[in-house]
Structures are given as C-alpha cells and as structure tokens.
Design a protein around this nucleic acid. Structure first.
Lengths: 204, 204
DNA sequence: AAGGAAATCAAACGATCGTTTGAGCCTACA
DNA sequence: TGTAGGCTCAAACGATCGTTTGATTTCCTT
C-alpha cells in the first residue's frame, strides 16, 4: 500500500474500496487494515469505531461531490439562456467524475449500497448535510419546468436520481467494452443520462 | 408467527423481511429463526446453508414477478394499437404489485440491495434465469421505438430499470403520506414512473 | 540529549456468527 | 401396535467479529 500517505488516509482509501466490494458488514477491520498495511487497532485509535469510519468514508466523498455540483450549478443558475441539459450536466457529471479521479469510483458503489440498505440514520445524515444542494438544484429545475406541480417535480427528480445511481453502481447491462477508454465511456454515460433525464423531466 | 404455515414457508417469509431490513450479512440465522418461531437448526436442515436460503428467497419472488410480467406483456405485445405506456405498464406494475400482496413488498428492498451488492454470481443468476423476460420486453420496445439504435435502446431500458428500482426501494424523498392509502400511493408511483419513462425512452 | 505525548504494536477479550451433532419427538405405514 | 423416517430440539463446535489493553516505539519539543 501507499506508504507515503498517513495511516488515517490509508485506512480511508482501503475502507472505501473494501466497503464497495463487500459491504459495510461484509468487510472486516482485519481485511481492511491488512490491505492498508496498518495495525488492526489503528482504526479504533484514529476513528473511534468502525461506524465512525463508515461516516468518514461518506463524508470525504460527499463533501467533494457537493462542492463540485454546486460549483457547476453556479455557472449556469439563473441565467436566461440556460437549458435543462445544463442543469442536468451540473448534477450528473460531477457524480460520474468521482469514478475517475482519486479512485473514488468505488465510492459510488458504496453509496448505491447505502441507498439500498435504507438506513434511516443515513437518510437523516444525507438530508441534514447535503439537503441544501438538492434544494438549489430543485429551484433551478422548477424555474425551467414551470408547468410542473411541486409534487410532480419532486417525483421526477427522484427518478432521475434513481437512474443516475443505477448507472453509477455499474450493475446494469451496459458494461464498458475493452476498446472504449474509461473517459469515453463516462462521457457516453453522461450523454445518455442527460438526454434520457431531460426528456423524462419534460414529459407533459 | 403464522403457525399454520410450514416451517420452510415460515423461514422464507421471515428471511425475506429480515434480509430487507438488515441485509444478507446483517441478518443472522438466530434473529431469523426466532422471528419465524422455528429452531435455529431448521435452516440448515431444510435449505442446506444460509446461502441456499438466500437463493430460495430470490427465486420465489422472481419467478412470481417474471410470470406476471410476461402475462401482462402477452396481452399487449405485437398488437398495432399498443402504446409505449402499455409496455411500460406491463414492466412496472407487476413489480410494484409485489409490494402489496403476500408481504412481498420487502422483497424489492432485498432486490435493490442485491443490485447494489453488485455480485457477479447474482448477475449471472439473473441473466440465466430471467434474461428471456428482458429480451421479450426489449423486442417490444424496439418495435415501438424503431428510430433508436440497439445500443441506445439498451441504455434507456437500463435507466428505466434504475428509476424503477430506486422508486421501489423506497429510499427517495417521496414518502407515502398517512392520508393516502397504500393502493393509491402505488398507483401514483406507477403513473409517475410510466409517464417519466415513456418520455425518457422517446427522447429524440 | 531528555522527556512526554502521539502512534503503533501483538495479544487477548467477550460476543456472535454459521454450522454440526445426537438425542428425542411425531407421524405414517406395516 | 410396533417401528422406521422425517422433523425438531438444546447444546456445543470452531471461526471470526469489533474492541480493548498495556507495552513499546516514534517523533517532536524544550
């Protein structure tokens, strides 16, 4: 393992990968610390408990994702020439980009898994810490889709989120072919998601 | 627990509920058998192992789901007056209906969770046992969407599946309000999904 | 260089996991 | 009614889990 990084960082990186592969319950601290090349007790020393470690893994990536989404949204929000596709790109592209840099690709599987685990405390955590991001996007969507009722809009944004999560979790039938670069595949995924979502959101 | 059902049935029912709540690794055989009101050893006696039990839980519901989907599709497939919404309804409604009868609602959380766990053996299992169902639906979609390339069509069906899975897993922001009956809420969910998906599939 | 806090380490803790065992129960068939 | 076989039961198995301990090492400050 990367011995130049700090023990804490190495634990976080290995934890993200192992949680994605085996789940939160399936990944043991012994596997995790062995992969990171650190002592077993280091997790409890640096994070307090396994549960706190899970929270840190989430926080590290979600903070990154939210910042990038808001930065992208800021460049197009409120402007009269902004299209629905622009807003969707600001929502979708930062998420897909996490798959590329810093090995954060595995995080999306972690997130998809956490969604499926349907934990109410996670729901609360997401709502409290990142609800304002969704609120800003919802405001922009509402501006561009004035014919939709609030409930109708909530529903459709939720379905876009579902499609995005599913695509990111990589479970679908669409697999990257060996003759397509990762960057190209990600760009194609974004294009498909944006086109599909824009049409779905615009449904009469 | 329902003491009239057989031990095997009681185990399957409790397993489905507990797997949905706590995951496959999180739900222990001791919790499971206690909830079912049967002896701990009954699982290994009747199913052989915990893993085999998981497979049985899947098979029981997926066989049901596939049969209902194909039955619904059969009534509209190939007919000239069939709309995209009809095909989508045959795809979506049986899945949502599982939430209603036989306590199968929890199963969809199990399935969503399994999707997120991203197990290759599960992917193979689904493809081998239920791939023909998706193939029949794809054929119908292709008939009604002749302007789409094969790859484009696969992508969009995949995104529909994502939206459906997300909605069924119940994690989204949309929660059933207490003054809306379960039946009504399900009908609204189906309507939103069908309208959104039809527009998404029909995107230029 | 000395001292002390921070970090790492091997080892062990109690709890819980899936599974197995072997004795007993119940039921159906002779 | 006797008995074989499917089934249930309490109990225990070894393995692994997250966590804690106390000694030791590392590193920074004075």
């Amino acid at each position: 393992m990367n011995s130049s990084a700090s023990t804490k960082e190495r634990i976080l990186t290995s934890a993200e990968a192992l949680f994605a592969q085996r789940g939160f319950e399936g990944a043991s601290l012994r596997q995790l610390t062995a992969a990171a090349g650190v002592n077993l007790a280091a997790v409890n020393y640096h994070f307090g408990s396994k549960e706190k470690l899970v929270e840190e893994v989430f926080k590290r990536r979600l903070d990154q994702l939210s910042a990038r989404r808001l930065a992208a949204l800021k460049q197009v929000a409120g402007q009269p020439e902004t299209t629905l596709e622009d807003i969707l790109a600001a929502f979708i592209r930062p998420a897909l980009d996490l798959s590329h840099d810093g090995g954060g690709g595995l995080f999306m599987r972690v997130l998809a898994r956490a969604f499926a685990e349907h934990d109410d405390s996670l729901r609360k955590f997401l709502s409290e810490n990142y609800g304002h991001v969704m609120r800003q996007f919802t405001t922009e969507f509402a501006r561009l889709l004035p014919h939709l009722s609030k409930e109708e809009l909530y529903w459709r944004i939720d379905l876009v989120t579902g499609a995005l999560t599913h695509a990111m979790s990589g479970f679908g039938i669409i697999q990257r072919k060996s003759d397509v670069s990762e960057t190209t595949h990600r760009e194609q995924t974004a294009a498909h998601l944006i086109r599909f979502s824009a049409a779905g959101l615009s449904a009469p």
